[in-house]
Write a protein that binds this DNA or RNA. Structure first.
Lengths: 196, 196, 196, 196
DNA sequence: CATGAATGAGCGTTCATTCAT
DNA sequence: GATGAATGAACGCTCATTCAT
């Protein structure tokens, strides 16, 4: 018989790759990078260990891929062009987007949060210049926003970062601990605090 | 030479144990749990690998011991008698104590923060009934405090927990990123926000 | 289009087989057997990995085939009829043929030389009765040649074998280390030494 | 009980290291580097795989050690000081020493011969400057010797190298194929050819 | 109490080989 | 005839843990 067409092969690859990424993401989120073995990922994906290396060069490159996917999703969270200023409206949307994303992309956030605490992997995260640039720019824009609208901008920005980070941690680590209504009113409070 | 007395033996044991814990804590904080080997700990402590197993059952139990020590220290941070209420003064002290502790016990916090994301390790905290009780009681008392002094107590308590957690994370992971004056004025702001 | 005839199919097979052998030979010679993967051979030949197994049972059998091809070429180097004696002229031609062959069939010699040290592979040469016979006969004829023309035939034959083997090794492993003129005069010296 | 004394530990290490080297040498000589696994070495030595890494950093470093040992043994073969000239007497001893060494250190020679044919491992062999220097110096001295005593020094030196190399190969690969008397008379012939 | 040689299970990774298409 | 996704055994290597001394 004839071999599969190139399109068929591509489709197989696309699906299998997604399957591997999903399995790895879930395990990385649940147990962390070092405690998750390639064996375990393969088992979860229902494939052989060897096949993973048909799709990814190494365990590390699999992680990098997951992180990059997440970054490319998230860079659009703050809907601002490269050199544009952040408006109050954008800030509101940004807050909402983060809170929403914490639910819809829970596993990604778990992985990212975990790794921001691990020096070796954090370095890996910043190994790409583009990633560093994206984050530096975002920081700069947020900085400008607070400088423009608040009396004590540094203090306020630290408050902003702290409360967002802390809330994220709480929501990630104890999901369901707070009722939706509370989350909702908290979100409104954040708007009152930081949207100008 | 006369043989050592039982007390001397005990003293030696206590000191060796402390030495091992210190070495492990420093390495866990610096490089993480998985990237720190028993060999490395022994080297840092200037003893043999085997001796560590004379004091601890396993690498994990060494970690657990470190975390439990820290928890028992921290639960006394808020020095309130069993059924006493938290006063505004106590709350102020609590905030200060936490911020101070983040500096003086940085390594402990680093280890704890990293492992709070690991479900199995997180459960270790609650393995002792007494720890569970202490934490539950603390939670209850803080809850009462906010109920008594704030219009939206749940919202306020979530704000309290978020900002403390987030600030802790920032201070731990990016030490030196914020100047002392800013930290100081931020602390005062926390007092204004949460001390009644 | 009309379906291919049986002859056409055979021709395709023959060409593909030759393509695979050529690719493998080049890689085996360049990087060695163990460091050359089937993947690499397929890539060099511009075909799929699977197709190689349509022509050869295994990587090893591909190697064996290469070696056997070469042996069957080489046993005809000394073109002496079955029971004929080796003449001085033939010996001269033999020496020249070997030296020429080291250049024209360099890759074959490289592979053969490397594997002559591997006992299991070395035995492959002798797996075919006909090969064993040919070699035995050749040995016998050379033996006769030296017995007839030299005072110390065994010593002389060992000298012959040694110098040819050693020169081959040097030329194969350090190509270009000796200028052509030197090689040429060395060849003449070999003639003076061994041609009677 | 008290632990072993440092001397006891050193003795254990020395013996175990020798055991590992012996086992590895034998297998490398018999089957080659790539076809010999750490597992196999451990099995032959009657120890666990892990223990090998208590003594050697890697499989490669084990090989390097073997090669270096051999070099340090052999650099004294040609009994000449750094800048001294090679005398006829020394050349005679050199020839004898090589032929003797081929028997007494057969496995070393097998390993070395094998690896001179394998580019990746040959490079490893020359990775140490001292090794390169030693060999370069030897080559230089032999070169001088032939220039001084022979009419066609390059041709003669190529003859010398070829016959020694070829004889070595023959003796290594087909031990016992030639009777001792023949080897002995061949040795005398080498003396007549190259000792001046 | 103290040592470090020794173990062995498990890791990430490679690659010859198979087989559905 | 031809493809390449998929397998699985084996590799080199690490390291928590054990134990004779």
């Amino acid at each position: 018989m004839s071999p599969r067409t190139k399109e068929q092969y591509k489709a197989i690859r696309r699906e299998k790759e997604a399957l591997i990424i999903d399995s790895a993401l879930e395990l990385f989120a649940e147990k962390g990078y070092h405690t998750t073995s390639i064996s375990h990922i393969a088992q979860k994906a229902g494939i052989s260990k060897g096949l993973i290396y048909n799709y990814f060069d190494s365990k590390e490159s699999l992680l990098v891929r997951i992180l990059q996917d997440f970054i490319s999703i998230n860079t659009s969270l703050l809907n601002v062009g490269s050199r544009q200023e952040i408006t109050g409206e954008n800030m509101g949307k940004y807050i909402d987007a983060i809170l929403d994303s914490l639910e819809t992309r829970r596993n990604y956030w778990l992985v990212l949060t975990r790794f921001s605490m691990q020096k070796d992997i954090a370095n890996l995260f910043f190994s790409h210049q583009s990633t560093r640039d994206t984050i530096a720019q975002l920081f700069h824009q947020v900085n400008n926003y607070f400088s423009k609208h608040f009396e004590h901008p540094h203090e306020e920005m630290l408050m902003f970062r702290s409360v967002i980070k802390g809330l994220a941690l709480i929501l990630l680590l104890t999901p369901g601990a707070y009722p939706p209504e509370l989350i909702h009113s908290f979100r409104e409070r954040l708007h009152r605090m930081f949207v100008r």
